[in-house]
Amino acid sequence: MSLIDKAVKALYGSKKYGELSSLYKLFDETVSDAIASELSDKLNLCNSTRAFDKIYVDLQWIDKIPLASFVTPQKDLNGHKIINKTEIGDLFIQYRHTNAYPIDGNSYCHRALVVQAKLASVEKPKVPIGYVNRKCVNSTTKELKLLESWPTFDLYESSRSSQPLARGLSVKLDDVPFSFYAGFSNQSKSWFFGKAKYTELCNKSFSDIIVELANNDAGKEVDHDSAWETITFEITKTCQNRKMPPSIAGKIESRHKSKGINEGVLYSFPAPLVYIFQRIWDKFLSMFRGKKMLVVTIDRVSYEGINMNKYR
């Protein structure tokens, strides 16, 4: 079993978990550390005195899950008309490879994928995992329509939003999967992932998805699709790169605003201390929040040149 899957499995006790509680257990530093360690090994990162790469991983919540409202009439898999908005997903994972000392731009790639998380009653479930009401539209059939087909939609910040964040978004379908389902099994205390396609078998682990994203076998390139770029920006605009050196974090596009700790405070304290404080604060706030989206940000930073020791 991989380092990531071992770390994930160790989070769960003998009790039964619900759909949300099983997902929220993934918010743990042991998981982010395992992701960094496994990717460092799988990607064969160079580690010399002149050049090396380092992986930084942050797990963060966003309070409001963006929703999609289809622009043109759509029907679910049973032929029922979809009227209401549907959530984009429960888990968003992005992988960014950045050069710390850019010459002609500092970004090598920026890929992201979205996951709809469900509670699975069997091992290796089939998409869409959740309950399908054959008599009318329900949340499961709406989610499947979005993640499998991506019809043109308007993007809203939350269910109560009356004005869209963006209109007429058309996410292009790719050969490389970028939207997934994930089912948690209380029997094995394991997650099973599969691409968002009707009857698709969910037989991949959390580790499989992470490694595939880093190897360009999963995820959509953000810069190649303006609609996907808009979604990515709206999901990650308040996220901070807390484990990364501030001089590098300031170059990453998603660090625009900060909810919680003031950005000035972020740079006035030693980074590890601020990171610990923010994690405690996030966990405290999570007790009073409603449903939220977990954002996993994986940054691979290539350092090449002088004064490398201070980043090790």
Rank of each mutant, 00 (worst) to 15 (best):
V8A: 08
K15M: 08
K16R: 09
S32V: 10
D41V: 12
L43H: 06
C46E: 06
R50C: 06
A51V: 11
D53H: 14
K54D: 00
K54Q: 04
I55Y: 01
Y56H: 09
L59T: 07
D63W: 07
S69W: 11
Q74G: 08
L77Q: 08
K81S: 15
G89L: 03
D90I: 03
Q94G: 12
A100I: 06
A100R: 06
A100M: 07
P102I: 00
G105W: 01
N106Q: 12
C109S: 15
Y131Q: 14
R134H: 14
K135A: 12
C136H: 15
T140C: 05
T141I: 09
L144N: 02
S161D: 14
A166I: 03
G168F: 09
V171A: 01
Y181D: 01
S185K: 11
K189Q: 10
W191A: 02
F193V: 08
G194E: 09
K195A: 01
A196Q: 03
T199C: 06
S207V: 09
D208P: 02
V211Q: 04
E212P: 07
N216F: 13
I235P: 04
T236G: 00
K237Y: 12
K237R: 15
T238H: 14
S254Y: 12
H256G: 08
K259L: 15
E263I: 10
L266C: 13
Y267V: 02
F269L: 14
P270L: 09
L273C: 08
I276A: 13
I280T: 03
W281R: 08
K283D: 11
M287V: 13
G290N: 13
M293C: 04
L294D: 10
L294T: 05
L294F: 01
T297V: 12
G305N: 06
I306L: 05
I306S: 14
R312P: 00
